[in-house]
């Protein structure tokens, strides 16, 4: 359903993606782990063309794009097949929580206002923020903003939802509420690609863990395989640093 073929991206002299090949099936929850600078965020952002890869092929649903010769029209098509949840939430500051969810539906999906309203209310309630429909982002906590961000992505009903370190900017107390919404989303069978440092999420919810380092996929597999019985040295080194010793030795 989502296929990435030989993706390359350089920022000036620095090659950040050195030939990524990845396939994601419908309903999978793929968690991408890796040290900073590994290229995981660049990979995610290349999927909806917030970064433009230099070389490679990206297929999302029924849209296939060659990164070297991509047109604005194709970029829009790919973006209409995806939705992103950002580290800094990026809610539209001049719109209320409800309007934030409706915005993409009305403008990009050309939906009628009544239908968009119904869908938006449904997803706002789903993330537990029904009473905050008329609040502006500046009036919401970080956790609340992120949950609206997730509702905004869900409402678009994309082929895949891209999560770019969704809890990294949250206070520890608020991380839980966002993770539980993400768990709900995963259990419903949505296709998700998540870049995160939350190992518990990877361990409990991911259907596949991908470990990236230095612009390549070092290893990937089921969470138990990669997190508990890593094969590669680089993977072991990374996990040793971020997992408490007790967890790893199991």
């Amino acid at each position: 359903m989502i296929e990435i073929k030989d993706l390359h991206k350089s920022f000036g002299e620095q090659e950040v993606l050195k030939g990524i090949n990845l396939k994601v099936e419908k309903g999978e929850v793929v968690v991408i782990l890796g040290p900073s600078g590994s290229g995981k965020t660049t990979l995610l952002r290349s999927l909806n063309f917030l970064e433009r890869a230099d070389k490679g092929e990206i297929t999302i649903g029924n849209v296939q794009v060659n990164c070297k010769h991509v047109t604005q029209k194709k970029i829009l098509e790919i973006r209409r097949n995806t939705a992103m949840v950002f580290q800094l939430y990026n809610l539209f500051k001049n719109k209320t929580a409800l309007e934030n969810i409706m915005e993409g539906l009305i403008v990009a999906r050309k939906m009628a206002k009544e239908e968009a309203l119904k869908i938006s209310h449904y997803y706002l309630e789903k993330v537990g923020l029904k009473e905050r429909a008329d609040a502006y982002p500046s009036q919401l906590s970080g956790g609340q903003q992120q949950r609206v961000g997730i509702a905004r992505a869900l409402a678009l009903n994309p082929e895949v939802i891209l999560f770019d370190e969704p809890t990294s900017a949250l206070d520890p107390e608020l991380v839980g509420e966002v993770l539980s919404v993400m768990r709900k989303v995963a259990k419903e069978g949505r296709t998700m690609i998540v870049v995160t440092h939350e190992i518990s999420f990877a361990r409990d919810i991911a259907s596949r863990v991908v470990f990236m380092d230095g612009g390549v996929i070092v290893e990937q597999g089921r969470p138990e395989e990669v997190l508990l019985r890593p094969k590669e040295e680089r993977t072991k080194k990374f996990l040793k640093r971020i997992l408490p010793a007790a967890d790893y030795s199991i």
């Binding site: 973006r79 950002f86 539209f92 500051k93």
Partner: peptide, 27 residues
């Protein structure tokens, strides 16, 4: 206007004109 606003607008599938008019200029 923070670049995140531009990115969010692009990521929901807006084109530049829609983004400028509905999200960026009001801010």
């Amino acid at each position: 206007v923070p670049s995140g606003q531009y990115e969010a607008a692009y990521s929901v599938g807006m084109n530049s004109r829609e983004m400028l008019y509905r999200i960026i200029l009001p801010q």
